[in-house]
Every structure is written in C-alpha cells, then in structure tokens.
C-alpha cells in the first residue's frame, strides 16, 4: 500500500511549547482513519504540523511517502493532501464558486470539478454567486469539503467536520464522506463525534496529551476506552 501521510516520533508545538510528544501515525492510500480525542489534546496541531503552521521540533513527517524537512503551507496540497480546517476558513470576499476554484489551485486532474461538487451539494449551486460566508454553518462545511475536493486529493483531512452541525446534517455528512471514500480518496477524520466516525472510519487512533494512547480497528473500539478518552 502506498503511504499518503505519516508521522514518525514527531514532537511539534508552537514557539517553545511542545504539544505533540513522540507521535506516530500513518495513513495509506484509500484508508479511512479517525483521530479521536478530547478538547485541547493536540488534534488540530497534527494538521498544523503537516501544514507548516505548527513547528516540528523532532521526528519525521512524510507527505506522499517523501520526508519533508522544510514544510511550507502549500506543500501538503501539492503532495495530494487537502484539508477541511476546523472552523472551515471560508474566504469571505470570494463567492461560493470562487472559493471552490481556489481549491483547484494545485491543478491536479481528477473526477472532482465545480459541477461535480454542485451535484453532491445542490445548495452550493443555488448560492454559487453569493459570498461564501453568507452561507449557514452546515453549508459552509459543505463548501469547505467541496473546496478541498476540488484539488482531487489522494487524502482528505477533516478537522472536526461535525462541530456545530445539527444531527441530521451530520448524518448527511457521513453519507457524503462515504461517497467520497468510495471514489478512492483516503480520509483522515479528526473528531469528538463518535457517531460520525463510527459510520465512516475503519481504523482509529485515540490521542491523549499529544500522544497516541490507543489504536486499532474501528470494530474493536470499546465503550470503556471511548469513555476514558472522549466524552460520548
């Protein structure tokens, strides 16, 4: 299996503060992996580390199988890894359509086009020419996912996609993500929402205090360890 994203013994943080300690993690092509963990354990810092936003202090980060020393913000996107950031980060002065086009900045050919994103999220088509931030929270989440898919990534990383969404919308989100994964795109879902993860992921990591506390197949995740590591 070809490796999409891997952390080996990574120590990372901000300024002098170490948030991730000795983190090991690996996702291969086509896998659907969840990272679970409570507020503030360092989940977003994993994303920030491979985006060059947090500082890597030790260890190795590999993007598409290649160890990258000096990670720039655009390195991951160019290696086929797209991120749906926590809080969505829709660009307010761009329209819905322009936000999608921005996602195609890497110009990787593939199945995902503006039309295909519109087919998956029809509401985005209706609101194509309104400013991205005029959408509701759920619609902005769709836009952020659509924007990430526009890069035709090998791996889609979602940081707490269910945050702030109504339960019915989370159900739809699960269907959409399975649809994306069925197209062969790998998924890394960072979540505290167990019901979303259970329906999408096949393998999990539980993060605690910046380290992997537990990992395994989704089916083997017990209620006890869930209670211990995340609030259900």
């Amino acid at each position: 299996m070809s490796e999409l994203l891997a952390f080996s013994n990574v120590v990372a943080g901000y300024g002098g503060a170490r948030i991730l300690h000795d983190l090991d993690l690996r996702i291969d092509a086509g896998e659907r992996v969840a990272v679970l963990g409570r507020n503030g354990v360092g989940k977003t810092t994993i994303v920030n580390a491979f985006l060059g936003i947090a500082r890597r202090m030790q260890g190795e980060i590999r993007l598409a199988g290649k160890a990258v020393g000096d990670i720039r913000h655009f390195t991951a996107a160019r290696a086929g890894i797209s991120v749906v950031p926590q809080g969505r980060c829709i660009i307010p002065n761009l329209t819905v359509r322009e936000n999608l086009i921005l996602g195609a900045a890497v110009r990787r050919k593939g199945a995902w086009t503006v039309e295909r994103v519109f087919a998956m999220f029809p509401i985005l088509k209706e609101r194509a020419d309104t400013p991205g931030t005029a959408l509701s929270g759920g619609q902005q989440q769709m836009l952020a996912i659509g924007r990430a898919l526009m890069a035709n990534p090998h791996l889609l990383v979602l940081d707490e996609p269910s945050e702030g969404l109504a339960p019915v919308i989370v159900d739809e989100l699960a269907d959409n993500l399975r649809h994306v994964a069925d197209g062969g795109t790998g998924l890394l879902i960072i979540e505290q929402n167990y019901s979303l993860v259970r329906r999408v992921a096949e393998r999990y990591y539980v993060l605690s205090k910046g380290e992997v506390a537990e990992q395994g197949a989704m089916a083997g995740l017990t209620k006890e360890s869930l209670k211990k590591h995340i609030a259900v």
């Binding site: 913000h73 991120v83 950031p85 660009i91 761009l94 322009e98 900045a105 890069a151």
Partner: peptide
C-alpha cells in the same frame, strides 16, 4: 483571472490561501 483570485484571497486570508496550494 486565476491569479487575481489568488490575490484577492491572499489579501484576506493568506494562510488558508496557501493551504490550498498557492505559493502566496
């Protein structure tokens, strides 16, 4: 233009723009 779009995006949120793969 495509670059014009990148310019507008970077002027508001350079980090998010770069994360999309743009060399800001």
């Amino acid at each position: 233009s495509r670059v014009g779009l990148f310019v507008r995006a970077s002027s508001i949120d350079p980090v998010t723009t770069a994360v999309q793969g743009v060399n800001t």
